[in-house]
Write a protein that binds this DNA or RNA. Structure first.
Lengths: 215, 215
DNA sequence: ATTCATATGATTGTATACAATAAATTTGAC
DNA sequence: GTCAAATTTATTGTATACAATCATATGAAT
C-alpha cells in the first residue's frame, strides 16, 4: 500500500519544509519540483495539496502555493492547543486506562530515566514521544488520539529544540511521574492539570522557544 | 478568489456526503462524477483529495476513494473531542474575552431566547452556532478556533437532529446563561466545565443520538 | 517623467492521452 | 462441475497538451 509517487513526494516535501529548506513566503514552483523529482506536474500538484490541507502551505488560486512557516504567535497558539489536547487525553485516560496501559507509561518513564543518566538526548526525545503517545491511546478515543498525533508531529521540530536546555530533562521526568500517579489514582482533574502544565510553554520555556526562532 | 472549479466541486460533494446521499462504503466514481459535473477527471480528483484530507472519505491506493460516514463509536469520539475543544476555548476565553466579545454572547443568547419563544428551531440553531463561534473567537487562539470550527462543521448534521428533542432548547438556553456568567466572572474552571457539560453527549442525549442514526 | 493601455511571458487550472494496476471474465484442465 | 491460470475489462495514476489567468514589460499619450 501507499505506492503512489504523489504520497511519497508529499512526505519528502513535508520533511523539507520541517527542515527549514524553504523560507516563509516562498513559492513552491510546480515546474521546478517536477524537474527535481523527475515526474510530471500532476503528482506534484497532488503532493502540494496534501501540504496545504495540513496547514504547512497556503494556496492562493491561480497564484500558487506558498510555504507557511508558523510565526511566534501561531506557534504559541499551537502549543497552547497541544496542551489542551493532552489535558483532554489525560482526563479521559484517568478513568479508561488499562493496567497494560499504565505499565507502558511506567516502562517509557524507565527508559526516559535511563536516557537521562546516559545523557542521551536523542533517546530521551524518542522515549518521551512514546510516553505521550501512550497517553493519547489510553484516552480510548481514536479521534482525539489522531488529532493529538497530528499536532504532535507538526510541533516536533520545535519541541526537539526545547528539550536541549539545561535542567529541562530532570524537570520533565518529575512531571511525568506526577502524571502517572494521577492516572493510577484515576484522578481526572489532577491528570489533566499535570499534563496541561507539562506541555504548556510559559515563563522560561517561552523565552527559550522564542530565542530558538531567531536561528 | 476561490474560482477554481475543483474547490466548488469539493464543497458540493461535502454537502452531498453530509446529506447522506452516499452510503457508508460507497465508492466515489471519478468518471461518473466527472460526467455529472461536466468536467474532466482532474478537478474531480482534486476535490476528492479534499474530502479525504478532511476525513470524510478514505483513499485506498489504486482502488479509489470511498465515503466514510462515521459510525456510532466515531461519532461519540468526535462529540467528546468537540466538548474538550470547547472547554479549552472557554478556559482561555475566561481571561481573554473582551467587553465586546461578552456583548456578542449576550446578544446571541437574546436572539436564541427569541427563537425559542417563536418556536423557530431553524433560527435557534443558527443563533446557537453564532454563540459557540463567538466563544471560539474569544479564546484569542486562532489555531484552536480553526480546529473548533472544523469539527463543529463536521458535526453539524448530527447536532441539527439533536436539537429537535423536547425540552432541549430551554435546557440549552439555561446552560448558555451559566456559561456567560462564568466568563463574565473570569472563572476559567467554571467556564470550561460548563461548556464541556453543555456540549457533551451523555445520558438521554446519547440515546437520542443513537436512535437518530437508524433513519 | 508619469500613467494608463496593450501586449507579452510565465504560471496555474483543466482536458485528454497513455501507462500501470486491480477486478472481472473467460478458458482450459482435471 | 470446480478450480486455476490467462485474458480481458475497468479504474486509478501519471504524462502531456491546451486554456485561462495573472504578473511583468513595453509603449504611447499627457
Amino acid at each position: 500500500m501507499e505506492l503512489r509517487r504523489a504520497d511519497k513526494i508529499a512526505e519528502t516535501l513535508e520533511q523539507l519544509v520541517f527542515a527549514g529548506e524553504y523560507r516563509n513566503g516562498e513559492r513552491l514552483d510546480e515546474h521546478k519540483l517536477a524537474e527535481y523529482f523527475r515526474v510530471s506536474r500532476t503528482p506534484i500538484r497532488e503532493a502540494l495539496q496534501v501540504l496545504v490541507s495540513s496547514g504547512m502551505a497556503e494556496q492562493i488560486p491561480r497564484r500558487g502555493v506558498f510555504v507557511r512557516q508558523p510565526g511566534p504567535v501561531e506557534l504559541m497558539e499551537m502549543f497552547e492547543t497541544m496542551a489542551e489536547l493532552e489535558a483532554a487525553c489525560g482526563r479521559f485516560a484517568a478513568s479508561r486506562i488499562t493496567d497494560a496501559g499504565l505499565q507502558q507509561l511506567v516502562d517509557a518513564n524507565h527508559n526516559c530515566q535511563q536516557a537521562i543518566e546516559a545523557q542521551d538526548h536523542g533517546r530521551y526525545y524518542a522515549e518521551n514521544e512514546v510516553f505521550h503517545q501512550a497517553i493519547y491511546k489510553a484516552s480510548a478515543n481514536a479521534y482525539l488520539e489522531k488529532q493529538a498525533l497530528q499536532l504532535q508531529n507538526r510541533l516536533k521540530p520545535y519541541r526537539k529544540i526545547q528539550l536541549r536546555f539545561r535542567g529541562r530533562l530532570a524537570q520533565s521526568m518529575a512531571e511525568h511521574v506526577a502524571i502517572v500517579t494521577a492516572l493510577q489514582d484515576g484522578d481526572a482533574e489532577k491528570a489533566s492539570d499535570a499534563l496541561r502544565r507539562h506541555v504548556a510553554v510559559q515563563g522560561e520555556k517561552f523565552h527559550q522557544l522564542m530565542a530558538s526562532l531567531n536561528n
